[in-house]
Design a protein around this nucleic acid. Structure first.
Length: 234
DNA sequence: CCCTGATTCGC
DNA sequence: GCGAATCAGG
């Protein structure tokens, strides 16, 4: 499908309107999301905040405390129509109202957290919640923190005796090589079980199988037929 | 997993 | 110029 003027127009409008590439592609039909993005870039459409790319603008901000007159952005033409404000300009911070007075009874909050002490102590104790949900002590506090009993670790029993010594699905952890040996569903299917190459799901030896240097596209060979996952032969 | 936009590069 | 493949963050 060719990029007719109409289609380009639609693309432009929708892109500037803040529609996602997927939406645009779907609206246009016959094109992929990638095609839309590629075309948008070739058209020189302004890239909108990418989820991947950090907006690198504020490099000099620290060096220049004085606010410069904002450089006019020539590219962005405000559309005459009312469109959703997609502006990402740093918004002025909302009023830092910590709200002391308040009309109560807005809602019955059932949050079990941080229930305020019924009798207000002269010095309210501020606590933060640590990992696991325990309450951290404030610097001044004397009382020893109540340490919750360590959770008991439940270890599932081995399903069958003939798997003794084999690394089963239940044995897998971050530290255990997950390279499969045999085939799922077969009686003795298990995993390598060696200590992993740190940072990888497999041991050093199996990492050698799992990871290979990436060649340029043109030099890539079609993959050898079905090391795993191929049709089961029975 | 899903989504997103950006980039690369064979065609 | 096109867009699939790939990358990389949310």
């Amino acid at each position: 499908m060719a990029w007719t003027d109409e289609r380009i127009d639609t693309l432009r409008k929708m892109w500037e309107d803040g529609q996602t590439a997927s939406q645009i592609a779907e609206a246009l039909g016959q094109v992929s999301r990638n095609a839309v993005i590629g075309k948008a870039h070739r058209l020189g459409l302004q890239s909108r905040p990418s989820p991947v790319k950090p907006n690198e603008v504020a490099v000099e901000v620290a060096a220049k405390p004085v606010v410069e007159p904002a450089a006019p952005k020539p590219v962005v033409a405000a559309l005459p129509e009312v469109s959703k404000p997609v502006e990402v300009v740093a918004a002025p911070p909302a009023d830092p109202v910590f709200e002391a007075d308040e009309d109560e009874d807005a809602e019955i909050s059932d949050a079990p957290v941080a229930a305020p002490a019924p009798v207000a102590p002269p010095q309210p104790i501020l606590r933060s919640v640590g990992p696991g949900g325990f309450l951290r002590q404030s610097p001044g506090e004397q009382q020893a923190p109540i340490t919750p009993a360590p959770p008991r670790r439940l270890v599932p029993a081995k399903p069958s005796a003939d798997m003794a010594g084999k690394t089963t699905l239940l044995d897998l952890s971050d530290r255990i090589c997950k390279w499969p040996l045999g085939h799922p569903g077969e009686p003795d299917f298990h995993f390598c079980g060696d200590k992993v190459n740190p940072g990888f799901p497999y041991c050093v030896a199996h990492c050698g199988h799992a990871y290979q240097a990436q060649l340029p596209r043109r030099d890539r060979r079609p993959p050898p037929p079905l090391p795993f996952g191929g049709p089961r032969v029975r």
